[in-house]
Amino acid sequence: MGSLKIENVKKAFGPVEVLKGIDLQVNDGEFVVFVGPSGCGKSTLLRVIAGLEDSTSGRVLIDGADVSVTPPAKRGIAMVFQTYALYPHLTVKNNMALGLKQAGTPAAEIERRIKIASAMLSLDPYLERRPAELSGGQRQRVAIGRAVVREPKLFLFDEPLSNLDAALRVNTRLEIAQLHRRLKATMIYVTHDQVEAMTLADKIVVLNAGRIEQIGSPMELYNSPANEFVAGFIGSPKMNFIDGARLGETARTIGVRPEHLTVDAKSGAWKGTVVHAEHLGADTNLYLDCEKAGLITVRIFGVYNAEPGATLYATPDAAKTYRFGADGKVLK
């Protein structure tokens, strides 16, 4: 239970086409992450899956059943929102209980599920409080708890961590990962954050302007991006793109990740001057202005001392260099 299939889903708001034909298969128990630039339609797709928005055409199937005319509450889903969206007039306990009460679940069963969820998310001390009396992290945990008690086939998360501070984000991320392991439920998760996507996902779906650019495991996307967009989107710092003509290559663009470049003070493929150096402790990012390749980023593991203005030679790892054709697709 808990598989999802999306067939050629399109969504338009008036004349504006936001989703331009999405096909996707999510298997039972999978953790799927949607990533993409702002405004590419991630939330819209999630809302179509939830039934909060009708698709203009196409079908959504949950467990093989077409849910096009099923209201959100009957789809066996639960959703966690970026803004928490807790009911301000209800206590934490009642926030979690409302959906179950609405579905006519017996009181004893509601009690049991709330107990399990609140233990899982360490919410016990707050059960009688109202949302206004909780911190941001606690609120988000309540929102997750509200989803958990429904025991849904499918969890939908819309950027659940983006309103939290960095430390809390790491903690809550871990909690979500543990939750997935424990419940073995299917989860769909929307995020802007590279790290969240790479660490949580079984499968990442890269969206751009209402289309799916590529679907694959984090390592597949990192190691063999299908096109320039995915190559640039996955990985941080971003991949260097160099005009093929400047390097005397037939491919339109040459891509090489900052971590796949080595530098040397005396010799190498591309001669350049250091523009700026960022020292992060564990690694160092160098910005080099190269004669042949233009401005590139080089990521060096560990500490590397380089003064701005110094001359360095950068050499790409030939095995890990990507060649993109005129249509942006990877050339084999």
Binding site: R47, A50, L52, P71, P72, A73, K74, I77, A78, M79, F81, Q82, T83, Y84, A85, L86, Y87, L98, G99, Q102, A103, R146
Partner: peptide
């Protein structure tokens, strides 16, 4: 009024 709040209500079957 937050859309998310209304949508949360819809998912809870209100």
């Amino acid at each position: 009024v937050s859309n998310d709040l209304k949508n949360a209500g819809r998912i809870d079957g209100l």
